[in-house]
Write a protein that binds this DNA or RNA. Structure first.
Length: 404
RNA sequence: GGAGGGAUGCCGGAGCGGCCAAUCGGAGCAGACUGUAAAUCUGCCGCCCUAAGGGCUACGUAGGUUCGAAUCCUACUCCCUCCA
């Protein structure tokens, strides 16, 4: 394995990195010529990968390109506990089948970014399964740590002081995650900054059994489309890797201007110099943030779909959002000849509003247009011409087709 | 085992007998504006009724007191804290 060039070093160790424990040691290991085992775990309690995860997966791919080996841990046991990181909501127990199905979907998405040929997939079951791992092991493992150590972890400390419950099983989570490191003889564990504690437990456990403790590679958490909280599915502020091009593009355009640069750094290969240029340009007003954001949106759609899709999504955005034109394809609402049904009822029936009350509110708020003309009155459907286009809100359309 | 505190709308969190479909913040939605589905401002934000009005269902669950309850009482369920 060759020495890292200056630019490779910067790309790997500086961009999109929050903290590396221990950087010098990791560098030494990389120069040794041995392919490193890069640990990345996930809980099959969810299926969809979003941009927040992509930050780490891209980093894994960069290491793979230098010949290193990813070891993907399917946390079929830890999924039963639920990672305490972040929120305290208890997760429902999953059945074995659900876990398998989730893992399947997850991996399909995972390998959109990470090189499958340089990935080893390991399930936790072989070392945590009943009959192999017993109470004795649980006791042995947990006796190595103290409550004070665990309460030092920021999010346990916070929940404890705020009077929020912490289940005993949640203490087991880091232990299990750490044990994984031992079982796969991990060289480096990758994770978001919220994973420090869990990763450090892995280091300690490895050391206790005489393994060389893993290095820890931490990446920043991506802020979600709301611009405040970390991107997560449960908060609904995410851009999924399987989102269709137009949606991916649109969601990206809706992010806060202040997040454009971080997104470019963490999610794209746009060169540093160019990002620097964007950054200063926007700061002194020479560049319109919208232009830069369009570039970002294009990059993302290009990476997950294709350059062509990105171009189409961009056109679509320009037409429907900026020029406020009607999109090419819109759903059809079939209506009987002399229907006396009211517009509000049909709007909610067609799913353009959650309830009829909401449809009425939208009418009042000038949010409903028929063929480009704002409508306030709750018309009878029979009075609407065949082929009319009804627009509700910013981007919900439907076309009326009359049946005889 | 004992003592205290709590359960409110998507989330956080007020209210503590009528003025409560419930203050406020966040999220969401809409309108205006705009160089963007950014920011900002304004409005909306349980459901149903062709409706300046009316009805129904809601404040952990089940009963009760009262002309009237999210607010008081009783039991139950769940959660938190402290003592043992």
């Amino acid at each position: 394995m060759k020495r890292l060039s200056e630019s490779e070093f910067k790309r790997l160790f500086r961009r999109g990195v929050s903290q590396i424990i221990n950087e010098d040691e990791l560098l030494r290991m990389m120069q040794s010529g041995r392919p490193l085992r890069l640990k990345q775990g996930f809980d099959p309690s969810f299926t969809d990968i979003h941009m927040g995860h992509v930050v780490g997966l891209r980093k894994l791919r960069q290491f793979q390109q230098l010949g290193h080996q990813v070891v993907l841990i399917v946390g079929d046991w830890t999924a039963r506990i639920g990672d305490p990181t972040g929120r305290s909501a208890t997760r429902p127990m999953l059945t074995g089948d659900q876990v398998k199905a989730n893992a399947q979907t997850y991996m399909e998405q995972f390998f959109k970014i990470v090189d499958k040929d340089r990935t080893e997939v390991r399930w936790q079951s072989p070392w945590f399964e009943k009959g192999i791992f017993g109470l004795e092991d649980v006791i042995r493992l947990s006796s190595k740590f103290t409550v004070a150590q665990f309460l030092a972890r920021e999010d346990f400390a916070r929940r404890y002081s705020e009077g929020h419950p912490i289940a005993i099983t949640e203490f087991l989570y880091p232990l299990m995650q750490g044990y994984d490191s031992v079982m796969i003889e991990s060289d480096v564990e990758f994770g978001g900054t919220d994973q420090v504690f869990n990763c450090m437990v892995g280091r300690q456990l490895q050391e206790m059994v005489g393994q060389k403790p893993q290095q820890v590679f931490l990446m920043p958490l991506l802020v979600g489309t709301d611009g405040v909280q970390k991107m997560s599915k449960s908060l609904g502020n995410y851009i999924g890797v399987t989102d269709p091009p137009a949606e991916m593009y649109g969601k990206t355009m809706s992010i806060n201007d202040s997040m454009i640069i971080p997104y470019l750094e963490l999610l794209t290969d746009v060169p540093d110099e160019e990002i620097e240029h964007f950054s200063t340009g926007m700061a002194d007003g020479r560049l319109n943030p919208m232009t830069v954001k369009k570039r970002l949106a294009h990059e993302l759609v290009k990476d997950f779909w294709s350059d062509k899709d990105a171009g189409e999504a961009a056109d679509e955005f320009a037409r429907t959002v900026q020029q406020k034109e009607v999109p090419d394809e819109i759903p059809v609402l079939k209506i009987a000849g002399g229907s006396t049904a009211l517009l509000s009822a049909e709007i909610s029936r067609a799913g353009l509003a959650k309830s009829r009350s909401e449809a009425r509110r939208l009418l009042e708020q000038n949010a409903v247009e028929i063929n480009g003309k704002t409508v306030n009155e709750d018309l009878e459907m029979g009075k609407i011409d065949d082929g009319s286009v009804i627009k509700v809100g910013k981007r919900r359309y439907i076309k009326v087709i009359r049946e005889k």
